[in-house]
């Protein structure tokens, strides 16, 4: 089966339920003005995504741009199958890995090895594959004897190396990436950069969310500009970026 990612008329509302809803509301209003609404049961909801459609095939490298609160992260989570949309549909064919937050599933109380095993099991790898991942990650992250000590006592450099090695050890056909991952590019070690490039090039479909145009220019072949949960523009990198960066 060919790798394929289909998004049709996706709409997604965020209900605001809990005690913090009011203060959360205030903070969100700044970014999402005009998107607060009430649903049929009079609950307050934020319309995080509205009428999103696109279709990605092998070779497509999509960049998502938009200011904070435009819906980029929510869209990535919907693509990863974490949030199920209330309207429309998302269909993913192919192995998928979503690099959404830097500490994804990493528990500082657990040892490096335990964290690696857990990540492998999240991805439903078998024992042999997990063992290979252990070797690969510990070698890259240069953890040595620290593998069997809790991550809590690692130096910050070791934590970053472990997180990075873990995230890049899994090579999916569909790769979803949030911008944090490429943000520290300037100081990246040469071998880290090599590994990351390898991962991105190895993915058949890439969806990358960022507001750094340099990252988009380097990695993407198509850009979607999200604004207040809607697609404002969709097309080749140069066109959309020019419109996005143009003074309003």
């Amino acid at each position: 089966m060919t790798t394929d990612l289909l998004v049709q008329n996706v709409g997604l509302d965020f209900p605001l339920y809990h005690g913090s809803a009011r203060s959360l509301k205030k903070t969100m209003v700044r970014n999402v003005t005009g998107r607060m609404a009430s649903d049929e049961q009079n609950r307050v909801v934020v319309q995080a995504l509205r009428d999103i459609s696109f279709h990605l095939k092998p070779g497509d490298k999509l960049g998502l741009v938009g200011r904070n609160g435009a819906g980029k992260s929510t869209l990535l989570r919907a693509l990863a199958g974490i949030y199920e949309p209330q309207r429309g549909r998302v269909r993913v064919q192919g192995s998928l890995n979503a690099l959404l937050d830097p500490n994804l599933g990493m528990n500082p109380e657990l040892t490096g090895r335990e964290n690696i095993v857990l990540r492998g099991q999240y991805q439903r790898m078998d024992r042999a594959a997990i063992r290979r991942m252990e070797e690969d990650v510990s070698e890259f992250a240069e953890l040595g004897d620290f593998m069997d000590l809790p991550v809590r006592i690692y130096s910050s450099g070791m934590v970053i190396r472990l997180g990075f090695a873990l995230a890049t050890a899994i090579r999916p056909q569909v790769l979803l990436m949030d911008e944090w991952f490429l943000a520290g590019d300037a100081n990246f070690l040469e071998k880290a950069r090599e590994r990351l490039e390898d991962l991105v090039r190895g993915a058949e479909i890439l969806v990358l969310s960022t507001h750094l145009s340099s990252v988009i220019e380097e990695w993407c072949s198509r850009v979607i500009w999200l604004d207040q949960g809607r697609i404002r523009a969709d097309g080749p990198v140069s066109e959309v970026l020019a419109a996005y960066l143009a003074p309003a």
Partner: peptide, 17 residues
């Protein structure tokens, strides 16, 4: 550099409203 890179199993899912 010959480092091994793992590929997760095939995933197919569809979420539909």
């Amino acid at each position: 550099d010959n480092a091994a890179i793992m590929s997760p199993p095939q995933t197919i899912f569809e979420t539909q409203a």
